[in-house]
Design a binder for these strands. Structure first.
Lengths: 314, 314
DNA sequence: TTTTGTATTATCGATACATATAAATCACTT
DNA sequence: AAGTGATTTATATGTATCGATAATACAAAA
């Protein structure tokens, strides 16, 4: 691999002139359009979107102008943007709007870590040469990893990566940890479910329960689960509990890169049923029941008999 | 305020020529010497210390040379360093070895936030000018805050601080979190106390129970507590539980500086008694009892009646 | 009055170079 | 052989500047 003077283009990345924030916006916006929030011909307000995303109008307008170039929207003088036709299907998104450099490197590092290609410690320069990116990208990626608890600066020089959930022991500990955190969260005095969010989760889990297995993407399944657990814990209104679950999700996401968890019919349905039962219990404010189901849900059978070794079910 | 070409000295910081890593080492090393690990005249091995701290010999030697300058140790040709006399009492530590710029700014930001001097959102430049430090320091401090979940980058520009870094709320959440973690740890199947460590803790806590209040250093008290809780959780044999408590301890170590936890006779004795009762229960393997005492120990009275607002008792 | 388009300003990111300093190596003493 | 001191090398930091771009302010149109 060429490690010197590498430009993004060499790696097939053509950012199409969009900045990283703009890329982020584009990748958020396109699915929204796809799901039909606006009818064809309807006006799309840049100011509203800016407010929704919590940023200024400038990057939003730039993305809309980009979408105008590819014919998704049209800009009329003094009348703003209107939808012409929904953007090309989501699968092309990566091609149309490639992930930012940081996103890419983030994935590469996670992948390399999960497969043992890089050790638990590394200096910036090492990574820089190994992946052939710029120092800044490496730096920002590491900062992001550290914000998620997946890496931390060592005293002196270099970075240390979190160990991955790469062995039976670590996975078991992770489950035990989550059981403690999540059951504790549900039983907190300050726990208070948000009805809207609860309903959204119910819809999502019901869909997972009924959809044909073949139509469920592995990553979609993972993210739905992660969202379920994180949302439930967030109702505890305790930032440290939430932070812990986020970290766990990040760790689990990382191992997901290594193994392509094949979904088993039984596992998926069981998990979705559990999730729905938990939501139901929360909805009727039977927190003890919710906690009990959660505990069982997160308890691995001690022998690990029913579970393929090293596989992550939920 | 002059923001260009500013040197630490202009702000009253005299780092004594020590780098941030060296400062850290010095502040770790001096208490170790104080507790009498080495007798006067005994040799202090730089290599061993470097190994212990997980860094190279270079910064350790520089610190030792600094300690030689102030007469704590002596360097003899080809015979390394030997202890001459324990370093000046801990209270002078800040004066002798001022905290690093990042440490300082960290505390300043926490303090400013807690007192409403800065809002929940701020740009780097704002902080930079407000506190009169360098860009790099601001950056690294923010990164650290974000790693601890107390701040996060906003999309676009600027940073957002955690909702209420105003301490009351955060401290309550911290207590609730620790109660969940520690009680969960004690009740784990894999929990197994190490007799030696248990005995050591008992000795330490007994000493705290009986010592005259005036003789108890605030920081020593804090560290003993931190050690107690971390050790108990470590017996759960769950790396994630241990990690969580470590993080909590380091967070508390920082906030402790912001508020000057004055020790109250009643508080100190009560805590030490609680700790001893917990150890006793663990020793007889009555884990339910241990967990119950722990829970009460970590529960703040809801009205907060007995506790000075914003004070950290344990 | 609200929304849109444009101009201005503020902030951050990228880069480069000089400096500081931590790590690694090696020779020497004990 | 182990530990120490000095040297070399690698790495990170500090500072400054420039350019990109996000935020904001403002003018014009609906």
């Amino acid at each position: 691999m060429n490690t010197k003077g590498a430009t993004p283009e060499q790696y097939g990345l053509d950012t199409g002139g969009l900045s990283s924030l703009q890329i982020e916006v584009a990748r958020k916006l396109m699915p929204i359009i796809s799901t039909g929030r606006w009818a064809v011909g309807e006006k799309i307000s840049d100011a509203a979107l800016a407010r929704e995303f919590g940023i200024s109008r400038t990057p939003v307008r730039q993305v809309l102008q980009f979408l105008a170039e590819i014919g998704t929207v049209a800009q009329t003088d003094n009348r703003g943007f209107t939808l012409v036709r929904p953007p090309p299907v989501d699968e092309n998104v990566d091609e149309l709007v490639p992930p930012s450099e940081v996103d890419t490197l983030y994935r590469q590092i996670m992948h390399a870590r999960a497969n043992g290609l890089i050790g638990s410690e590394a200096s910036e320069t090492e990574l820089l040469e190994y992946f052939g990116t710029s120092r800044g990208t490496v730096r920002r990626t590491l900062i992001r990893l550290s914000a998620e608890g997946l890496a931390e600066r060592r005293d002196g020089h270099g970075w240390r990566f979190a160990e991955c959930l790469d062995n039976r022991q670590a996975v078991n500990e992770s489950y035990a940890f989550r059981a403690i955190i999540e059951c504790g969260a549900v039983m907190e005095d300050t726990f208070c479910a948000d009805p809207e969010a609860l309903e959204a989760l119910e819809r999502e889990q019901t869909a997972l329960l009924n959809a044909p297995l073949a139509s469920i993407e592995g990553s979609a399944w993972f993210e739905a689960n992660a969202r379920f657990h994180e949302t439930v814990v967030s109702w505890s209104n305790n930032r440290f509990l939430v932070q812990s679950i986020r970290r766990q999700n990040s760790l689990r996401r990382m191992t997901e890169y290594a193994e392509f968890a094949e979904l088993s019919e039984a596992g998926v349905r069981k998990a979705a049923r559990d999730h729905l039962a938990i939501l139901e219990a929360i909805n009727t404010d039977d927190r003890k029941l919710a906690s009990a189901i959660l505990f069982r849900h997160l308890s691995r059978s001690p022998a690990g008999a029913a579970v393929t070794p090293g596989r992550i079910e939920d």
